[in-house]
């Protein structure tokens, strides 16, 4: 299964939800997905196109465009193609359906994205902080306008 046929199949199946689909190289493809339907798309990817391996899931903050992108990097155990699927969310109230029912290992990725970017995942089984202490929740440190960085408290002798 090569990159072009995958993109073709995906856009055929979800003409409304998938846009800006592109083939970067033989093994890299990108697509944007409407956030409402991400679970269905993921299920289709996993069941039909054998994209069984969720490499990672993370957020990117674009304050000047006022949006947060959630990127799903999905690979496969059968073919070498990797799909970078993006869902664009508004920055003020980022909400998206959780893909944990499809990809089990998305659990921690979503928890981390939640506490670092403030993306709220609907239907997530256990949405709470993962890596930060509890009192830091709500600061969203990986957003570009985070105030606590750089942290100038270190004793630098020079």
């Amino acid at each position: 299964m090569d990159a072009r046929s995958i993109i073709a199949s995906l856009t055929d199946r979800f003409p409304e939800d998938i846009y800006d689909a592109d083939v970067e190289s033989d093994i890299r493809t990108v697509a944007k997905v409407k956030p409402e339907n991400v679970v269905d798309v993921c299920r289709y990817l996993k069941d039909e196109l054998s994209f069984g391996h969720l490499c990672c899931e993370f957020g990117i903050d674009y304050p000047d465009r006022n949006e947060i992108e959630v990127v799903y990097t999905i690979g496969s155990y059968e073919h070498p193609v990797v799909l970078n699927m993006k869902a664009v969310l508004p920055r003020d109230d980022p909400q998206i359906r959780s893909v944990v029912p499809v990809y089990w290992n998305a659990n921690w990725y979503e928890r981390e994205t939640y506490e670092l970017f403030g993306v709220e995942y609907i239907d997530h089984p256990n949405l709470k902080q993962l890596v930060l202490p509890e009192d830091m929740l709500g600061e969203w440190p990986l957003r570009k306008d985070y105030k606590g960085y750089p942290n100038k408290t270190a004793k630098n002798l020079v």
Binding site: R28, V30, C55, C56, F58, I60, V71, T73, G75, V82, N84
Partner: peptide, 19 residues
């Protein structure tokens, strides 16, 4: 641009996504 590059770490698949 954006790129995803992955290598084989001693422990498995190591990848960097860079924007």
């Amino acid at each position: 641009g954006e790129v995803f590059h992955r290598v084989e770490d001693p422990r498995g698949e190591m990848g960097f996504y860079m924007v």
